[in-house]
Amino acid sequence: MDIEKYIASGILELYVAGALSDAENIDIQAYADAHPEIQQEIEAIEAAILQLTKSTSPGMPNTAFEVIKKRSNPDVVSLTTKKPVFTYLGWAASLLFAAGMLWMYLEKDKLSTSIQLVEEERQTLEEQLDGLKETLADKEQTERILQELRSKEIEVVALGGQNVAPTSYAKVYWNKKERKVYVDGKGLPEPPEGYDYQVWSLTLQPLTPTSIGVLSNFKGNSTHIFELKNDNTSEAFGITLEPKGGSETPNLEQLYTLGTVGP
């Protein structure tokens, strides 16, 4: 082989750079072993590269090799393994923090659910209390009405069903002294939507109706007993079905019940 030509090709520079394949490297090493000129040339190239690379070094500290020796000794904890431990510690801490936050969130959620339940319970109890109060008030009212109806001042007038509703009936309890009537409408059918029963005081000769009031909220009054004022010297009472709120004059075609006051 032409050694000079081989050296001049530049392949040895590439060899020192490590820019060749394993196969090429093995060939060159074999040539270098066989030809001292090639070996010398390789060393000369390497020396130049060593000079060049040294010139870009900031300088290694004098203590550097001691550090390397310590780190290379497996008995001493290596610095390279220390770093990841701290990294993992950071991760572990953040995981722990996240878990803590999640736990707090779940606890808070539990608490708000409890608060909501307690609030619902309180509302139910309040409603029950309201119901009881109403029942009590109703009871008191009924009691009072019963007392009134038993008074000896009361005159009872039975009102019988008329053409429109033959099976219906009503009773008027009239306290002349206190000038009021209790109308018991239990025998009347529920008025249709948009209509009210209206109670009339009647004088018979001539027949003159005077309104004494409307049985408002018929449906909502469980006893169907209504208290109305009556200043009239009534001879009879009649109940007609009128548009909601009542009328000026009775619609006699819708006369449900009628009854005369006894002598």
């Binding site: 870009t56 290694m60 500290p61 550097a64």
Partner: peptide, 30 residues
Amino acid sequence: GMYAENICGVINGIIKNPERSQELCQDVFV
């Protein structure tokens, strides 16, 4: 002793950070 400065120089030539190059050079020898 023969190669530390060269290795440090090569690293510095790539990363251009003198302090970090010294540390990495130690890593290389380890």
